[in-house]
């Protein structure tokens, strides 16, 4: 008779709190909750836009409440965290070869940040012009 009796360890539900790497992963995934909320706020804005000027101005006014500012600041922080993690993982999904050598990770990441800066400045310019 076999004396084998393999022991299976249970994975605790809070496994993602036990290790900083996993916690950061969960924050990355969790950033989607506030970004979802932000998209819904914009969708709400489109609804108000379709209802006329008074409705749209009401939406703009609602955005001025301290609570709204707080939510947006939080969403901004998480959105930036998403950006950072997205860019840092980007080289892993890119398979570009130049003259028989793989494009270096640093180059890909730097390219992303460069484009990010251009896009951000561009958006700020068109909204203020």
């Amino acid at each position: 008779m076999t004396k084998r009796k393999p022991y299976k360890r249970e994975l605790p539900t809070d496994w993602w709190l036990k290790h900083a790497f996993y916690t950061k992963y969960m924050i990355r995934e969790g950033s989607s909750v506030l970004i979802t909320l932000y998209s819904l706020i914009l969708a709400w804005g489109v609804l108000r836009l379709s209802q006329g000027e008074a409705a749209f101005n009401g939406w703009l006014e609602a955005l001025q409440s301290p609570f709204s500012i707080f939510i947006h600041l939080l969403a901004l922080a998480l959105a930036l965290y998403h950006t950072i993690t997205w860019f840092s993982l980007a080289p892993k999904a890119v398979d570009l070869w130049l003259k028989g050598k793989r494009l270096e990770d640093k180059v890909i990441v730097a390219g992303h940040y460069g484009a990010f800066a251009v896009v951000t400045v561009f958006c700020l310019l068109i909204i203020t012009l």
């Binding site: 998403h82 950006t83 990010f116 896009v119 951000t120 958006c123």
Partner: peptide, 8 residues
């Protein structure tokens, strides 16, 4: 989201 959401 990575490129535009922060500035939006």
């Amino acid at each position: 989201t990575a490129f535009l959401t922060p500035v939006m």
